[in-house]
Design a protein around this nucleic acid. Structure first.
Lengths: 150, 150
DNA sequence: CCCGTCATGCAATAAAATTGCATCGTTTTG
DNA sequence: CAAAACGATGCAATTTTATTGCATGACGGG
């Protein structure tokens, strides 16, 4: 993992649709050498996957919310059960067990407030293990990167 | 935007590295027709971009943290200034202005706790516009999807 | 100093994307 | 109601791109 690999990763994290020849030229290598590096990065798992990122508005998910969740019972199995439950919801795009002010943080992608309500009703129903939860609607997204700076 | 488009988007959000011929076969179209659909989805911006997703551990960012931030001054320009400031930090992967319990939520990707400390010192220094902030370390990531379910 | 290892570039080959064209179903228009 | 227009499709030819074999040169260990 040298300077060239890092440069490759930077480029591919921004745009993985460019051709290998382009990529090769940008980093100053022959196409074949470049390709072999990229393949190695994929094989070793540094590059996990190549995906399409949609425009949320044009894909019909205009609303984003962050929800912090406090659990009643904190045992490992209770935590796991809640996370499994939350993970199954399509609207949940990220789900984290955290230390500190709360127990779980969810990030939701929603069509509208109606869907928000429906998801909350399912996740935080009476017999669920949730003491309380705070819903914060995203007013403005200043940054939302998939890239990891190298 | 019909059933086939939605199926295409589902597939491409999981794996955009497959060949057009593969994709075409999976959805039951000829390669040329499939390609034209994908190109349209890109051109109209439904597909925003194609990117490489790295394995955070193998890319040297093992630590993730969620930080909630309360501002002193809440005017639009103060909010903007803080968000601009936060956005410039490489470790900040997501930055949201939100309604509700707090003002700003940041999601950080860090090498170690030392970097966490350094970032916090820069973002929440004395003359910054921050009343207080809560740092929550991610213990477990149950879900972290880039996909939007269609 | 020689050998083994590894990454590289070049050129040939294989695979994939792209395009032109004809067809078919649907909608619009006269 | 029929004709025209539009859009999406499949096929096959063409262009572009990825991939591979091979020879070269750099580097480190014995």
């Amino acid at each position: 993992m040298d300077r060239i690999d890092r440069k490759l990763l930077e480029l591919l994290q921004r745009d993985a649709s460019r051709t290998n020849a382009d990529l090769a030229e940008k980093i100053g290598l022959a196409p074949s050498s470049c390709l072999r590096r990229v393949r190695r990065l994929r094989k070793t798992g540094v590059i996990d996957r190549i995906v399409a990122i949609l425009n949320p508005a044009k894909a019909g998910r205009t609303l984003k919310a962050v929800v912090t969740v406090e659990l009643k019972l904190h045992g490992e199995q209770h935590m796991r059960r809640f996370l499994d439950f939350a993970t199954r919801e399509n609207a949940v795009s990220q789900a984290y067990a955290v230390t500190g002010q709360t127990d779980v943080i969810l990030i939701l992608r929603l069509r509208d407030t109606e869907e928000l309500n429906a998801v909350c009703e399912r996740l935080f129903e009476d017999q669920s293990n949730v003491t309380r939860f705070y819903t914060m609607l995203v007013r403005r997204t200043a940054k939302d990167d998939t890239a990891i700076s190298m």
